[in-house]
């Protein structure tokens, strides 16, 4: 049979990628689930004291940083994602409507995507610098005295605000690119039709552009939520391994940081299992949110 022959070839071509996926993705994935249920797993000696259902999860939840990590992660997710999606939407609609220099602006808005998150984080840390930073300089112009955004002893809210600004900005590029390509695939006739019917700009946006772009918006919202739940490199980029301003260390710890924290002392008994348990908690939270969003999208997204 023709089909069988093709199958064999297909598997052959797939095998290199599959092999890598199995070794570096699927095995660690399932192994994490396994690790999370081991009791007192000794990573070096590879010994366990039996199995436990919730033991490792309890340790994670009761760990001193858990609450802070939860708060920080949720703040990042629920503040930065909606803002950056909306800003990206407006920017891309504006970009799509200009004719001259569109390519130039597209490049400008796309640049953050190809720059390193850590490097940009350092740049942002400088923008928010108390003495020399751009933000405080500008605040000074309108007569507001310098704010300690990210410096020694900066408050949680100031530091979080700076982090959010950076996170929003860093996430714009990809979203704008996706939205722009989506906008460009919308049939111009819809806009001509709307124009003939004297549709105000606001209504064109809300009743035509957004619904027709809704599959893209949904895709961006879901991937951004997942990305934001995994926030880590942004914090490192801005504050370094201390995960917070000096004097207020670890105040900006995120969920992923919690996982890495556990791994840091993986030599100690049970640490690997704690890391796995933390990762699974994050996975479950992300899963629930994604499912909820997909349920909402069934009603709101027009394919």
């Amino acid at each position: 049979m023709l089909e069988n022959k093709n199958n064999l070839k297909a598997w052959l071509y797939l095998s290199p990628a599959l092999l890598l996926l199995v070794v570096f993705t699927f095995y660690p994935l399932f192994n994490a689930f396994y690790l999370a249920f081991l009791k007192d797993f000794n990573f070096l000696l590879r010994t366990i004291e039996g199995y436990t259902l919730f033991g490792n999860f309890k340790i994670v939840i009761n760990s001193p940083n858990f609450k802070q990590a939860m708060i920080n992660t949720f703040v990042i997710v629920f503040v930065s994602v909606p803002i950056s999606v909306m800003v990206a939407l407006f920017v891309s609609v504006a970009l799509n409507s200009i004719k001259k220099l569109q390519g130039v602006f597209q490049t400008i808005y796309f640049l953050p995507y190809v720059t390193n998150a850590i490097a940009v984080g350092m740049a942002f840390a400088f923008i928010f610098h108390q003495q020399y930073g751009l933000i405080n300089t500008m605040l000074d112009w309108i007569g507001i005295s310098p704010v300690n955004w990210v410096g020694t002893g900066a408050t949680w809210s100031n530091a979080m605000f700076s982090l959010l600004v950076y996170t929003v900005w860093g996430g714009l590029a990809f979203k704008i690119m996706i939205f722009l390509s989506g906008l460009q695939s919308i049939d111009k006739q819809y806009y001509d039709a709307a124009r003939i019917d004297a549709t105000p700009r606001k209504r064109v946006f809300s009743r035509i552009t957004v619904p027709l772009l809704s599959p893209m918006i949904m895709y961006i919202v879901i991937t951004s939520f997942i990305g934001a739940f995994k926030a880590y490199s942004t914090v490192i980029g801005m504050f370094g391994p201390s995960l917070g301003p000096k004097g207020n260390e670890r105040s900006l710890i995120t969920f992923v940081a919690l996982v890495y924290d556990a791994l840091q002392h993986s030599g100690s008994i049970g640490a690997m299992s704690e890391a796995a348990a933390a990762a699974i908690i994050l996975f479950l939270i992300t899963l629930v949110f994604t499912l909820v969003q997909m349920q909402i999208s069934k009603k709101r997204v027009h394919y």
């Binding site: 049939d187 006739q189 819809y190 001509d192 039709a193 709307a194 003939i196 019917d197 004297a198 549709t199 105000p200 209504r203 009743r207 035509i208 619904p211 027709l212 809704s214 027009h302």
Partner: peptide, 27 residues
């Protein structure tokens, strides 16, 4: 003017009713 496009340009996410009512909404 009323214009009927070659491929109709009906808004795919709206029902027939919403499509027909759309110009009135603007008025």
């Amino acid at each position: 003017i009323g214009l009927v496009f070659q491929n109709y340009a009906l808004y795919p996410h709206m029902t027939v009713k919403q499509n027909i009512m759309f110009p009135l909404e603007n008025l």
